[in-house]
Design a protein around this nucleic acid. Structure first.
Lengths: 210, 210
DNA sequence: TATTGTGAAAGGGTTCACAGCG
DNA sequence: CGCTGTGAACCCTTTCACAATA
């Protein structure tokens, strides 16, 4: 309902709440308190109530939140009450791992195309898909109504892949290449940098002792 | 040499600065200003100066920072002036992608073991490694001086994998399974949740237009 | 009575602006 | 003169504490 002013980390917490609600629902529970949710996720009850309050008032005082309904509401808030058509750029091993990963499909993310520049890969069968030339991206994105692109190319090709995706009309990009990529306004980018994650662990270990 | 009080996001920025410095060094530059670094990464000069100032005073007023030296300093701060021995738990496709990924090795992260519970996988050749039974983890971690574990199992096995890793003596865990995992004090955990990343894009797209 | 929803307070990170220095 | 290093100001996020209420 209300304000679009919510932090990025808060949005990510909503995703987690949704998971916990799935779990509670499977366990047959009908209501949960902010306390219960907090316990499931190692967060504080106050934070959960505050996060939810940005979007409305879903609970009953004295009782807690109705599991099924809150689940549905969060799902809608996150845009998961529909399916999203997704393409991969980069038919390498990481792309293959994502293609095969079931967690995306379960949440409504359907990978409907894979693109690569390598002529040796183009045309090859690739799980349920066939690898297509990146040159075909424009038409494919339009005709198959693809809205999200996932970049799993090496660093060198990442920016160009993103440019193509943006030109083709994709509105969001998840980038796994180890460079920050730029995209025009209107295209949301999220960088997932695995080396940075390992380096932050290295930092933590280095502080620990010595 | 100074304060251990630096935010997680600041540490990640250091990783990025290091990348930019690699780049500047390859281009043959000897000094960079905070302005230059900021331009490379889409951040502000003030933030860069502030981040660096937590660890010392590396620049020359009026000139900027010496590229090679700052690179070496950041490298040491992040604990990258040595190599780290890493193991994978979960010999699936994601694990295979990480195993083969060269970016880790380049920064000194060596994957020296893979574990799985599946008897059909145990004993199989797996790139340069052989899949080992998780039951062998204790001995392997100790004898091969493994300090970091990467969990790429399905959600169901993640917590148990983490428990085993912690018991075996690993000091940091990078978790790709879609559950937040717990570890005893002294073991640093970082969760990378790909579904959450996609969901945050879905949220952004849903806000955009209706 | 138990638990939500929320203003107000606290805490932490980022930006500003300028003094300090090569 | 140019650019760093940094205290202070600002802003955003989290936590607190309690009035509202099913």
């Amino acid at each position: 309902m209300s304000p679009p002013k919510i932090s990025d980390s808060a949005v990510r917490r909503l995703s987690h709440y949704l998971r916990f609600l799935d779990q509670f629902e499977m366990e047959g529970r009908f209501t949960v308190s902010s306390e219960d949710l907090a316990a499931a996720g190692g967060m504080t009850p106050a934070q959960i109530r505050k996060d939810l309050s940005h979007f409305g008032s879903f609970g009953k005082r004295g009782l807690g939140y109705p599991v099924a309904e809150l689940r549905a509401r969060l799902s809608a808030i996150l845009g998961l009450d529909r399916s999203w058509r997704v393409c991969l750029v980069g038919a390498g091993r990481l792309g293959a791992a994502l293609q095969q990963y079931d967690g995306f499909r379960r949440r409504g993310f359907e990978i409907v195309a894979v693109f690569d520049t390598d002529p040796k890969k183009v045309g090859r069968r690739w799980g349920p898909l066939t690898v297509e030339d990146v040159a075909a991206m424009d038409r494919a994105v339009a005709s198959r109504a693809i809205e999200i692109g996932i970049v799993t190319t090496p660093a060198g090709g990442a920016q160009e892949s993103a440019d193509r995706l943006a030109r083709a009309g994709v509105r969001a990009i998840l980038n796994f290449a180890p460079v920050a990529i730029e995209a025009p306004a209107g295209v949301t980018v999220r960088d997932v940098d695995l080396v940075v994650e390992l380096e932050s662990l290295s930092y933590a270990l280095t502080r620990d002792r010595g």
